[in-house]
């Protein structure tokens, strides 16, 4: 036993010395090194599929795939629907975010809780739930169907599916942004003679705008990539994700890959815009303020 213990100690010491030498070289403590390694692992996991996608991309076929009118239509439907969705979410979701951040009303925590439901619901289930409301026999769907407007299998259906799934991103982000606004600035504006309406537009929203915009960019991205609820509510007209899926199941990976590239590029552009907006909204040192 004692011998074994001594041996363990010896190897333990040797390992300790090795770690010590390594950390000396890297100028970090062992704990920090562990954190760095875990962070690197996460990054690799997230980036690997993207790199593999680019490597596997049949570049020669990309121009032909992009010229495919069906693919172009699908991309157009996705982008148009995502833009309409984002506009609708901005219109109604930002006031909701403000209300959640500032007003105390009954069932406020229930509303907050409900807000997270679409984020965690399987998207297909969201689609089914919506179908019950907006389908031709649902309460809202029947109303519109009687007036000749189809809410399912139409652009309206795509927007409905996207809005449900993507709205929480903007609402949650904008709510945090409104909560970060110093409430005293709103209070003082009241004593300066401003109405609630004017305060929202000139004091609250401008200060929360950066966070709200970042949230709206996420909403656009989530809407653009929406697949599960869309397949239930509006399989047609094809959105890009649905068309990619159709191509994948019909013709296999080679047919789907060039389309995946289109999605990747569109997302990259929006992410870049969102990051730039965010940086402009929160320049270094803004947080200091005058308080």
């Amino acid at each position: 036993m004692t011998q074994m213990g001594a041996l363990d100690n010896a190897t333990g010491e040797a390992r300790g010395r090795r770690v010590a030498r390594l950390t000396r070289i890297l100028h970090v403590e062992p704990g920090a090194l562990t954190l760095w390694l875990l962070a690197a692992l996460a990054l690799i996991y997230l980036v690997a599929p993207l790199i593999e996608l680019l490597l596997a991309e049949p570049w020669a076929q990309v121009p032909a795939a992009l010229a495919d009118p069906q693919a172009l239509d699908a991309a157009r439907v996705s982008a148009l629907a995502a833009s309409i969705t984002t506009a609708l979410v901005a219109l109604a979701g930002i006031p909701l975010a403000y209300a959640l951040a500032r007003w105390r009303f009954p069932l406020r925590s229930l509303v907050t809780w409900l807000l997270f439901v679409p984020l965690v619901f399987p998207a297909v289930v969201s689609g089914i739930a919506q179908l019950l409301v907006y389908g031709p026999y649902g309460p809202v769907g029947a109303f519109f169907a009687a007036r000749g407007i189809e809410l399912t299998d139409s652009l309206a259906g795509v927007v409905l599916a996207q809005s449900f799934v993507a709205a929480p991103f903007a609402v949650v982000a904008a709510r945090s942004a409104f909560e970060a606004v110093n409430p005293l600035t709103e209070t003082v504006a009241q004593t300066l003679g401003a109405s609630r309406w004017r305060i929202f537009w000139t004091i609250s929203l401008p200060q929360a705008w950066g966070g709200a915009l970042a949230g709206l960019a996420l909403t656009w991205l989530r809407a653009f990539g929406e697949f599960g609820a869309t397949t239930v509510l509006a399989y047609h007209p094809y959105t890009l994700p649905v068309y990619v899926y159709v191509q994948l199941t019909g013709l296999g990976t080679p047919a789907a890959l060039p389309l995946a590239l289109v999605a990747l590029v569109a997302c990259a552009i929006v992410i870049t815009i969102a990051l730039l907006l965010n940086r402009r909204a929160y320049p270094a040192g803004t947080a200091g303020g005058a308080s």
């Binding site: 110093n182 005293l184 600035t185 209070t187 003082v188 504006a189 009241q190 004593t191 300066l192 003679g193 401003a194 109405s195 004091i203 401008p206 200060q207 803004t286 303020g289 005058a290 308080s291």
Partner: peptide, 18 residues
Amino acid sequence: PRLRRVGYVPQSYALFPH
């Protein structure tokens, strides 16, 4: 408050940072 014509300067001043 907006109709009272009472100027209020809070402890932290609360200038509009934007």
